[in-house]
Design a protein around this nucleic acid. Structure first.
Lengths: 157, 157
DNA sequence: TTGCTCCTCACGTCACGTGAGGTGGC
DNA sequence: TTGCTCCTCACGTCACGTGAGGTGGC
């Protein structure tokens, strides 16, 4: 016999999923995460394994996806899919997430590189005694090297 | 003589900054990016170097910062800061961005690892002939190994 | 003068935040 | 019965999106 998982009230479920009641009710409205059942009084009861679903939704949001896109990625969740369809759909969703992750990691690494360069240049600025003048507003371009500043310094000066 | 940078109308400026008019006007409302001047008829004119500022704002938003936090990170931008204060403020902003980047990259890498594991398990599923039953709803737990599914598969099945 | 760009309201939207007022469950 | 959790509206917010109706600039 499979252990019949204990259902959770929305508060406990929200805690396990690191989210809150409002968000869960909104996800339900969009059909993203539905409680397994309701009590006679209207209380929502959730399957513990569905916390994984909530966490995945949040992760995909962080990757820049809108809730409607996420719903489309998940596709219908009925019983009316056969084994093959189900496996294929899951694989496509995972591959899509993988693509988004690779892109994101690449751009963040590039950003990190630029931050490093800006900090290095800033070291030089500490050592340099020249004052910014109206001639080179906020030290742009650099009076010492006459080069333009790294973009990040240009943004922050 | 320093080349007096040509000022840009909001449309050209938006194109260079990969954004749009509404966003720039909203940033102005919040005091984040102000046009260098206005024409008699009210047209905004921007300094080309300020595209760096706009791009930085967008990058920080992608890292999860709100516009008010970004404004605070930037601090006041008046002429009334001395050289040392200015350099220190810029350094703090860059270091903060660096921290956010490291955190973000680490969590994205972890996510990528989990996607890889899920895809590997899915390969096994393709090879496995067992049908999901009501006993193991959507193959959870796995009927072959009796292990729980990777969280991502649990979320997607 | 014509066409394109820009202007200022101002209402709409997405993903929730935050009460108000009321009821369910151990 | 008491206290805590939950319920459903419903209005508010952040960061813009999207016209409406009008004017500026080469």
């Amino acid at each position: 016999m499979s252990t019949p998982e204990e259902l959770l009230k929305i508060g406990d479920f929200a805690r396990r999923a690191s989210t809150n009641l409002r968000t869960l009710r909104y996800y339900e409205e969009l059909g993203l995460v539905r409680p397994a059942s309701r009590s006679a009084g209207g209380f929502r009861y959730y399957r513990p394994t569905d916390v994984n679903r909530v966490r995945l939704i949040r992760d995909l949001q962080e990757l820049g996806m809108q809730l409607e896109q996420i719903a489309a990625l998940f596709g219908p969740r009925g019983e009316d899919l056969d084994r093959r369809e189900r496996l294929d759909r899951v694989q496509r969703a995972l591959e899509e997430q993988g693509r988004l992750l690779e892109e994101r990691i690449a751009t963040l690494r590039a950003m990190r590189g630029r931050v490093g360069e800006a900090l290095a240049k800033l070291e030089e600025c500490h050592a340099c005694g020249l004052e910014p003048s109206t001639d080179n507003n906020f030290c742009e371009p650099c009076r010492r090297t006459l080069d333009p500043l790294p973009d990040l310094l240009s943004a922050l000066f």
